[in-house]
Simulated scan of single mutants.
Amino acid sequence: MSQARDYHGQCHCGAVTFTAHTDLAALGDCNCSRCRRLGWVMQAVPSSDFTLLSGDANLTRYRFNTEKIEHLFCKTCGIESFARGVDGQGNETVMVNVNCLEDAPPVDRNAIHHWDGANF
């Protein structure tokens, strides 16, 4: 989509805020039972390119299935603006909900990678 830069993100109520440094070049969605219900667009960023600015104490953690991904929800508004996990090479990664980025360009859902999480 563009060159890497810092994006500001937040949950709906603004209690959880963060920045993510990314180029938004690897957008994806997933059809697993959880992601399908949420409908969010994902962008993986190395944990070193993610900074939680506020709201850590306001996050509720949820793990399911293999429990390898830490899904984090705002206790106030219920929005999951990001999740934490480890990629296939063992690197700590943050999966950012692009719909929670304040200044991201519009997403063409036909142009993103579709992950078959339902059959993973």
Score class of each variant (00 low, 15 high):
91 N>C: 09
74 C>M: 06
41 V>Q: 02
86 V>W: 11
73 F>M: 12
64 F>G: 09
109 R>P: 01
114 H>M: 12
38 L>C: 07
34 R>T: 13
112 I>P: 03
40 W>F: 15
82 F>E: 00
42 M>N: 09
81 S>Y: 00
103 D>F: 10
43 Q>K: 06
92 E>L: 12
103 D>Y: 10
85 G>L: 06
37 R>I: 07
65 N>G: 04
55 G>F: 00
91 N>S: 08
110 N>D: 07
84 R>A: 06
98 V>Y: 01
36 R>Y: 07
48 S>Q: 11
86 V>R: 14
45 V>M: 04
69 I>V: 14
83 A>M: 08
88 G>K: 11
112 I>Y: 04
39 G>Q: 05
53 L>G: 04
44 A>L: 12
68 K>S: 06
104 A>Q: 00
87 D>M: 15
35 C>A: 07
47 S>F: 09
102 E>Y: 04
102 E>I: 11
49 D>E: 15
73 F>A: 06
47 S>V: 15
34 R>H: 05
104 A>F: 02
84 R>S: 06
66 T>F: 03
87 D>S: 10
44 A>S: 11
115 W>L: 14
113 H>L: 15
72 L>A: 03
48 S>E: 15
109 R>H: 08
77 C>V: 15
72 L>C: 02
109 R>T: 07
114 H>C: 14
108 D>E: 09
79 I>A: 03
83 A>W: 00
101 L>P: 00
108 D>R: 13
76 T>I: 08
110 N>P: 01
74 C>I: 01
73 F>P: 05
80 E>R: 04
69 I>P: 01
89 Q>C: 13
53 L>I: 14
94 V>K: 02
67 E>S: 08
97 N>E: 11
65 N>Y: 09
58 N>D: 13
72 L>P: 00
90 G>E: 13
67 E>K: 14
86 V>M: 13
57 A>C: 05
106 P>L: 05
44 A>G: 05
56 D>P: 01
43 Q>V: 10
43 Q>A: 10
98 V>M: 03
34 R>D: 03
109 R>V: 11
57 A>N: 11
102 E>N: 11
73 F>G: 09
83 A>F: 00
34 R>W: 06
106 P>E: 06
82 F>T: 02
111 A>K: 08
84 R>D: 03
60 T>G: 09
99 N>G: 13
52 L>A: 09
81 S>L: 04
79 I>V: 14
67 E>H: 14
90 G>D: 13
55 G>Q: 01
91 N>V: 08
37 R>W: 02
46 P>L: 08
101 L>I: 05
98 V>F: 02
63 R>E: 12
111 A>C: 07
91 N>E: 07
49 D>C: 15
80 E>Q: 15
111 A>R: 13
67 E>F: 03
105 P>W: 03
85 G>M: 04
109 R>F: 03
71 H>P: 01
56 D>F: 04
